[in-house]
Amino acid sequence: MNLQLDEHGRLRHFLSTEGLPRELLTQILDTAESFSGVIGKSVKKVPLLRGRTVMNLFFEASTRTRTTFELAAKRLSADVINMDISTSSAVKGESLLDTLRNLEAMQCDMFVVRHGDSGAAHFIARHALPGVSVINAGDGRHAHPTQAMLDMFTIRRHKGEFEPLRIAIVGDILHSRVARSQIHALNGLGAGEVRVIAPRTLLPRQVEDLGVHVYYDIDQGLRDVDVIIMLRLQKERMAGALLPSESEYFRRYGLSAERVALAKPDAIVMHPGPTNRGVEIEAGVADGPQSVILEQVTNGIAVRMAVMSLAMGATGERA
């Protein structure tokens, strides 16, 4: 039984891209496509979630993700409440379940959850009242499914079909919830080949079981790929004896213009942001013609609108 789906196979919670049927992943992308038209208009709102309340529950700080969720909810005409839990009750010793029960008592319809612990969104979904949807906005190292779907949306817009594509994900796979969700989404959508490129210290054990080919050498790994996805390298990785230094990392795994040239000529360069220029990506590449990094941010709104409306069962009214 998949916690994410209701008895009719429709989206109830969105916790992970793993194990979702291809039709559902495609439905999210198609729905997002229809919303991206709305965003371009001068009146940017649709009334799908009018009267519904969405609570942004952020146990971990985030500007970009929270803002796009908030915008997405508002464009669906929902009421939005932002709860920055990292500075409130959780630190006073209130349990996650207590926090949840108290917030549920305020009658909201959806929780958008970001939490530093893997499995937090699953936990909340398992304990949420019937009729309340949970959207995972990032849990520990586990999943960040809306980020992955906006990446899929961006890839599809540029490349069309997934089957012929070769995609390389470069960098800190070990700590990355984004990479895990991207890998499951790409495989779920039938991508031709997913590669991960990193030193062994930044690869989780048995990563190939996720359905990827492993490359330690970036110059080999980037050869003939259609999509390059760079991951952010957190500065604290040096302290954990995972890497010798930032400069060494950039030399071995940083994305330079020369390395971009190893990929297909029309390859796109992606990054979930925020970028560490000069650490994992050269400034010229991040701002270069093949970069779609800012588009990813824009697409985040339509994709989150799609996920929210689908999880609330509100798509039927859209026509």
């Binding site: 190292r141 586990h142 054990r205 079981d209």
Partner: peptide, 18 residues
């Protein structure tokens, strides 16, 4: 560490114990 370091810890994003 929260789980055996292997396929499951990798999927669940849990710190593994080798």
């Amino acid at each position: 560490g929260l789980a055996h370091e292997g396929a499951v810890s990798t999927r669940l994003g849990l710190i593994g114990i080798p």
